[in-house]
């Protein structure tokens, strides 16, 4: 009897524990430990390797934070990869023509404008975001190829490369500062501000949110514009790390980004948004990519495993 009463609170806590929302942390630790044991001779736990994983997932993380807002508002953005590519190209071209600051401004505006166009169509013309951003996905890659004649544009500006690429601030790589800033602000805004609350309300029950006075159209517009901005920043980070702008940067990233967000516990049906979860989701995908490479799987096999993970993520996000 006394045993039962002692366990009751723990049991009810376990029952209330949201497996779905926290599974990413368990999976993360499990896969990390698994690789650490299996791949201990291949240098998986080598600090350089771990740093590399974080460096390579930085762009996905930045896009995933913005995508968390889009998905929490029950919309989707398939154009993030293309925006990143176009932004990298525009940044590179503008730097060589007009210099550093105009280059950064131009790159960022590309994303904000593309996001604002999608957002406007979704919010006020009520075109489904899936279709709008699917169209944008093709359209923007086309623009990027067109203006560059499909050729890479090198970046020679060392300040730019230091800020957005391989530079360090003291011992800390600048790319980590970007990630920390984006994740930190993203998490606080989502959990602690009216805007974040209204994003989740819009995705949770559109009609109810509207009746309560949430400006749902404006929320949808802003989340898609932010997603464009996030993708543009990711494109600029690509350009910094790879010292060039190229239309291929970011190609296919939308799938990894969406998978990261869903794995992180954000509901594909809207109403929930977990920014920290998305960070872990993104790094988790990087972890798996890295582990698979160290195991000696080739690109095609990696794609199979990644695809399976995405299906698993979506299956987990189904409604109860």
């Amino acid at each position: 009897m006394s045993n039962q009463t002692a366990f009751a609170p723990i049991l009810s806590r376990l029952k209330r524990f949201e497996w779905r929302q926290n599974i990413i942390y368990i999976a993360f630790v499990a896969v990390f430990l698994l690789f650490a044991v299996l791949l201990r001779d291949s240098g998986f736990t080598n600090p350089n390797n771990l740093m590399n994983i974080l460096r390579q997932t930085a762009t996905i993380t930045v896009m995933a934070v913005a995508m968390t807002y889009v998905i929490a508002a029950a919309e989707i953005d398939l154009s993030v990869g293309s925006i990143a590519g176009l932004s990298s190209v525009v940044t590179a071209m503008s730097i060589s023509s007009w210099g550093l600051v105009p280059g950064i401004m131009a790159g960022l505006s590309v994303g904000l404008v593309a996001g604002a166009i999608s957002g406007g169509l979704v919010a006020w013309l009520k075109v489904p975001s899936f279709l709008v951003t699917l169209g944008m996905l093709g359209l923007l890659v086309g623009v990027a190829r067109w203006i560059t004649a499909s050729a890479p544009i090198p970046i020679a500006d060392q300040t730019y490369i230091a800020i957005f690429g391989g530079g360090q601030l003291g011992p800390v790589p600048t790319i980590f500062i970007w990630v920390t800033l984006v994740v930190g602000i993203g998490a606080i805004v989502m959990n602690k501000t009216k805007f974040g609350r209204h994003v989740r309300a819009t995705g949770g029950n559109l009609v109810a949110a509207g009746y309560t006075g949430v400006k749902t159209a404006r929320v949808k517009f802003i989340v898609l514009m932010l997603s464009g901005g996030g993708a543009a920043l990711a494109g600029m980070l690509y350009a910094g790390r790879l010292q060039s702008g190229r239309f291929q940067w970011g190609t296919g990233d939308e799938l990894s980004v969406i998978a990261a967000v869903i794995l992180g516990g954000t509901s594909l049906f809207g109403g929930r948004g977990q920014v920290i979860g998305s960070l872990f989701g993104a790094v988790f995908i990087g972890l798996i990519n890295n582990g698979l490479i160290l195991m000696g799987l080739d690109v095609s096999q990696q794609q199979v495993v990644r695809g399976a993970i995405i299906i698993l993520a979506v299956a987990l996000s189904r409604k109860k």
Partner: peptide, 29 residues
């Protein structure tokens, strides 16, 4: 009080009650 309920299922009771009316300090809820 709507016949078809006007609450956001994924938010808490308090968050629903104060939706659009959230008490804030320095812009944070």
């Amino acid at each position: 009080v709507f016949q078809e309920f006007s609450l956001i299922p994924s938010l808490t009771v308090a968050q629903n009650i104060f939706l659009t009316n959230e008490p804030t300090k320095y812009g944070l809820i």
